[in-house]
C-alpha cells in the first residue's frame, strides 16, 4: 500500500551549518537583548551583535561572518517584530556596508591592525549605509546629514568597545570541547 505522506526531504546539515547557526543564535540573542535598552537618539545602539560577527570573521573567515551577520539581521528583526519595517532596511543596509568594509579590512596587515580597526571601520561603514538609505528613501532631505556627527561619535565609541571585547574573546582560545 502506498504511504499517505509524501516522502520527507532531508537537507544534509554540515558542521559549517551548525557552527554558523550557533554563532547566529548568539548574535540574535544579543541584538534582541539590546533592543530592550533605551537609546538617547533613535538609531544609536551599541551593536553588540557585531562582536560575534568580528569573532566569526577572525576565526572562520568572511563567508561565515556574512552568514552570521545577515541571519542576525533577518531573524533578529523577526524576533523584535521589525521585519520589513524601515528599521529592518536600515539594519540591512548597515550590515551589507559593514560586511563590504570588513572584506576590505581583511586585506590590512594583521601585524599592525587588529579587531579594533575592523570594528571601528565596520561601524563607520554601518552608519554610512544607514545614512544613505535614510537620505535616499526615508527622509529625502539634507537635514539627515546633521545627524552624522552624532552617529560618528557613537560609531567610534561603540566600535572601539566592541572591537576590544572581540579582541579579548579572540585572545582567549575557545575551550576544546566547544570548538567546532
Amino acid at each position: 500500500m502506498r504511504a499517505m505522506t509524501a516522502s520527507t526531504i532531508e537537507l544534509p546539515v554540515g558542521d559549517d551549518d551548525r557552527r554558523i547557526a550557533r554563532y547566529a543564535a548568539a548574535a540574535i540573542a544579543l541584538s534582541v537583548a539590546e533592543a530592550a535598552l533605551p537609546s538617547p537618539l533613535p538609531g544609536i545602539k551599541p551593536g553588540l551583535a557585531n562582536i560575534i560577527v568580528l569573532v566569526v570573521l577572525a576565526r572562520h573567515g568572511w563567508r561565515d561572518a556574512a552568514w552570521v551577520s545577515l541571519l542576525r539581521v533577518v531573524a533578529g528583526s523577526l524576533a523584535i517584530g521589525q521585519f520589513l519595517a524601515p528599521g529592518f532596511f536600515l539594519a540591512l543596509a548597515g550590515a551589507l556596508c559593514s560586511l563590504a568594509m570588513l572584506a576590505l579590512a581583511q586585506a590590512l596587515p594583521a601585524r599592525w591592525f587588529g579587531p579594533v580597526t575592523a570594528s571601528v571601520l565596520a561601524a563607520f561603514a554601518h552608519i554610512g549605509g544607514q545614512i544613505l538609505v535614510a537620505r535616499t528613501w526615508l527622509v529625502p532631505h539634507d537635514g539627515v546629514f546633521f545627524l552624522i556627527p552624532m552617529f560618528a561619535v557613537a560609531a567610534l565609541f561603540f566600535g572601539t568597545i566592541n572591537g576590544l571585547i572581540a579582541a579579548r574573546l579572540l585572545a582567549t582560545p575557545p575551550r576544546a570541547d566547544s570548538a567546532t
Binding site: 596587515p109 572591537g163 579582541a167
Partner: peptide
C-alpha cells in the same frame, strides 16, 4: 592595552 596593535 595589549589588545590594541599600533595600526589600531
Amino acid at each position: 592595552q595589549a589588545l590594541l596593535r599600533p595600526g589600531d
